[in-house]
Design a protein around this nucleic acid. Structure first.
Lengths: 361, 361
DNA sequence: TTGTATGCGTTATCAT
DNA sequence: ATGATAACGCATACAA
């Protein structure tokens, strides 16, 4: 009961202004403002002020504070979808780090669509932000020098090479693709499927193959990982077969479709690399339905096994999503303090679990 | 490229004020303000204004706007943990609905702790909110009439009976508990374990048993569901065995511990009801390790199988989490418009899948 | 329809 | 250390 009462009184909508407090406690607003910002005031004044604050439950308005040019303590976050363990985990990391700094996070989801993303960004621009963490859906080519963008501190997360001069926080996707492919090869599996996932405006099959060889002006994580896949194949002199590559989305259904597509295309596939768990689940379900045994007939490696919550059955490339969120906030805060910030590439590791096994003939 | 440029120019930090626009276009600020708010102005003025707006990329500051008393278009959300499919899904629903209304969501996580929750609420109070959606962790007894709380529109989500006079959006937990228990009984399984999960300050084993019988002044979802469990047992004249009940947390590890605990306590358990997937995974893993076969030896039913992303293997009580989020925002907006809002109880359904089977002796 | 003047809650500047 | 006052960007009552 006491607890609830406290909560309630704390969160009341604005009633008293700094002027009211000044009047009630007999000091000037200037003195109060200084007091709130950590400066010391005369002893007997402090006592009086404290008592009045207690009684009124006064809270400063950050709207007014922000208007005066100081910071709002609010950072923005644009994310494709909150209902996805990958982004939820990053968001959790962001919020934890933000809380440590007394910051809040204003969220918007782009719902995996470029159009919605535009709307949300537009909406954000009318809001009170010290900075923005942006997990893009958009496909953006030929990015020019952006002089128009130097005012709002910005960090790009989970993608690399999107906007020059802006810090990007991402995983070493190429290494992930390389490690997973190499491991499957070492298990004796030379027919390795690669299921690339995209949000909006997916790469075409051809584009993907194209991007894997020549340096692109931007990248998606699927493309990075695909590069590693190609690299490993080359290293072991395994001919690349385009029929082993599927481009799809990020849903459970995408996995089902991808599996069907693979099964329909050719006769033998004994290894497979999938971008995320939802797709992998759909994929596995469909393969099982067609009589494949996992891991014997078909070994699977996925990215981001969503550590703490899952059944721990997928062999996976482990990502560090909480850390990714934390680093994003740290970078953003550096930027906001005028310090230079650079890209951060987080390492990945192969974690062998239940969905991979040596190929027996 | 064009896309990125647009984004950038839109989100630039404030440069022009309404006064600048007034000066540049030769009209007064009042005229501009009216124009922005939909009133018509003289034709030739409108053209001039439009051109200036185009050139400057002017955006009104909602900080100033909100200071004047109008709404900020921002709703608050306090959630125990974003990195949990249950809450992530609710949050997604909230954000989708918010976006439809041009609103943004200010998020804070309580990290499953009452203390952190207090901090976050405290931080929220310094912010600009039109209303608040609150998913509580706190255990709150004997809630009094809260006169101090009539200013900030508030909705409680995923819990019921927390604060009188405030609308609650929740699932029919008792029905869920009842349906799952009844189904297991009908499969011939009369030894049904119930694994209750709590965030912070968990109920003691005794408290839980207590709350199940007498009407409590507040409730947790685990308690609601437990009531349904008891109800079904009574209906089939099955004696209640306290040893079949475990109180634990919401993590994977909680499930492992709960399973160990159950196994250690007694000899026979052929059915089990679990609150959430992470716990169920841990639980299933531990039971399997001990030689139990699922669903033959042990049938499992869980709540919230996290529909779109999962492997669809658990028999479950399906919740409507996206809808829960949407309804929360709708209720909150009604409240903000001064309309009365009432509790919403969302229905649940039993979804039979792979983790339940008839008991064969 | 338009412009002038004032207030919103805070911080910063300047004298005291 | 303190108090009076001018900003900040916007909305609006009121006069024109």
């Amino acid at each position: 009961m006491l607890y609830i009462l406290q909560v309630m009184s704390i969160i009341e909508k604005h009633t008293h202004s700094i002027k009211d407090i000044a009047r009630l406690s007999g000091v000037s607003t200037a003195t109060l403002s200084r007091y709130f910002n950590g400066q010391s005031i005369r002893k007997n004044n402090e006592e009086k002020v404290k008592r009045v604050l207690e009684e009124t439950g006064y809270r400063p308005s950050i709207a007014a504070r922000f208007m005066k040019g100081s910071s709002s303590g609010v950072i923005g976050l644009i994310v494709p979808e909150m209902n996805h363990p990958f982004f939820a985990m990053i968001a959790e990391g962001i919020m934890q780090e933000a809380r440590k700094n007394g910051q809040l996070v204003l969220c918007g989801t782009s719902e995996g669509s470029v159009e919605v993303e535009r709307q949300v960004i537009n909406r954000f621009s009318q809001s009170i932000l010290d900075g923005l963490i942006y997990i893009p859906v958009a496909k953006a080519e030929n990015i020019p020098a952006l002089e128009s963008f130097r005012n709002l501190p910005l960090v790009i997360t989970a993608r690399r090479n999107i906007i020059p001069g802006v810090p990007h926080i991402y995983h070493d996707g190429e290494k992930g693709g390389y490690l997973s492919t190499k491991y499957l090869i070492q298990l004796g599996r030379l027919r390795i499927g690669f299921i690339a996932s995209f949000w909006d405006a997916p790469c075409s099959h051809e584009e993907l193959l194209d991007f894997a060889t020549k340096p692109a002006s931007y990248t998606f994580s699927s493309i990075e990982r695909f590069r590693g896949y190609i690299k490993a194949l080359n290293e072991f002199d395994i001919p690349f077969d385009p029929d082993l590559v599927v481009v799809t989305g990020y849903e459970h259904k995408s996995g089902v479709d991808a599996a069907s597509s693979l099964i329909g295309r050719f006769s033998s596939c004994n290894g497979i690399i999938v971008m995320t768990q939802a797709v992998a689940n759909g994929c596995a379900a469909q393969f099982k339905r067609q009589g494949y045994k996992i891991p014997e007939d078909l070994s699977m490696i996925i990215f981001d096994a969503n550590e703490s919550k899952a059944d721990y059955t997928f062999t996976s490339i482990e990502l560090h999503l909480l850390k990714m969120g934390e680093e994003s906030v740290k970078e953003l805060n550096m930027l906001m303090q005028g310090e230079p910030a650079e890209d951060i590439c987080l390492d990945v590791e192969l974690c062998v679990r239940d969905t991979t096994a040596i190929l027996r003939l």
